[in-house]
């Protein structure tokens, strides 16, 4: 059964109190037990696979030996026939037939072994799916528990300060006031930067003798001299 439905049932039953177990501890134990079972099943399956692998290697070696023996006897049978030893060739042929039947038995043993190995691989995969699925379910439980823990520590603060009216509105006002202050400071900073940049330009213009004149008395004297001359 999905943990979420389990939680919903518990919530409908009124388990909404903070700290209350909203997932049956038994359900969690079952999920954990299934994970342990699947892990130990995978462990023994892997041991069987190792045993089967060594059986398979042995069978392959035996089949190869039988094939080599049969090929060897075939050559000898042909040689016997060429030598006109019909009776001997027949005896060799019988030996070959024996080897071939033995090979057939080994080959069918190997085929059975292959089927078993595939079954075990499939079993391991399905157990691994169980483990992953249960771990996801457990993580849902863990998530709810952690959300509960993370909320609980502040809810206690609510209880202490939350009795005051308009707690949220007041907090919002404070945050917004701070943001305004921050924005004002940013704008002030930008304004100051602009001013500094502006005075830079003025200074540059003055240096080139452009814009507002800086010298007072010398300008006046020059003007008076010009008037006198005129």
């Amino acid at each position: 059964m999905g943990v979420l439905r389990d939680m919903m049932t518990a919530l409908r039953g009124g388990a909404s109190e903070v700290g209350e177990a909203i997932v049956d501890a038994n359900a969690i134990r079952i999920l954990e037990q299934e994970i342990r079972d699947a892990e130990s099943a995978i462990g023994s399956a892997k041991q069987s696979l190792t045993r089967m692998k060594s059986a398979e290697i042995k069978l392959k070696r035996e089949i190869a030996t039988l094939d080599a023996d049969a090929a060897d006897y075939e050559q000898k049978a042909v040689a016997a026939l060429n030598a006109g030893e019909e009776a001997l060739a027949t005896e060799v042929a019988e030996r070959i037939a024996e080897l071939e039947s033995e090979r057939g038995e080994k080959a069918s043993e190997q085929a059975t072994l292959d089927v078993e190995v595939r079954k075990i691989h499939a079993m391991i995969k399905s157990r691994e799916r169980t483990i992953q699925k249960n771990k996801r379910e457990l993580d849902k439980v863990r998530t709810v528990q952690e959300l509960q823990r993370a909320t609980e520590s502040v809810s206690r603060n609510f209880a202490a300060t939350g009795s005051s009216e308009h707690r949220v509105s007041k907090a919002l006002e404070r945050v917004k006031a701070k943001q305004e202050g921050w924005k004002d400071r940013m704008e002030a900073g930008e304004w100051l930067e602009g001013q500094e940049a502006g005075s830079d330009i003025d200074a540059k213009l003055r240096a080139k003798g452009i814009g507002a004149s800086a010298g007072g008395a010398s300008d006046v004297l020059a003007r008076l001299k010009a008037k006198q001359a005129g």
Partner: peptide
């Protein structure tokens, strides 16, 4: 409030 599970980082802001 930040907390962790085996797979997730959870961040919670209690509102009211």
């Amino acid at each position: 409030h930040v907390t962790m599970t085996d797979t997730q980082i959870l961040s919670v802001t209690p509102l009211f």
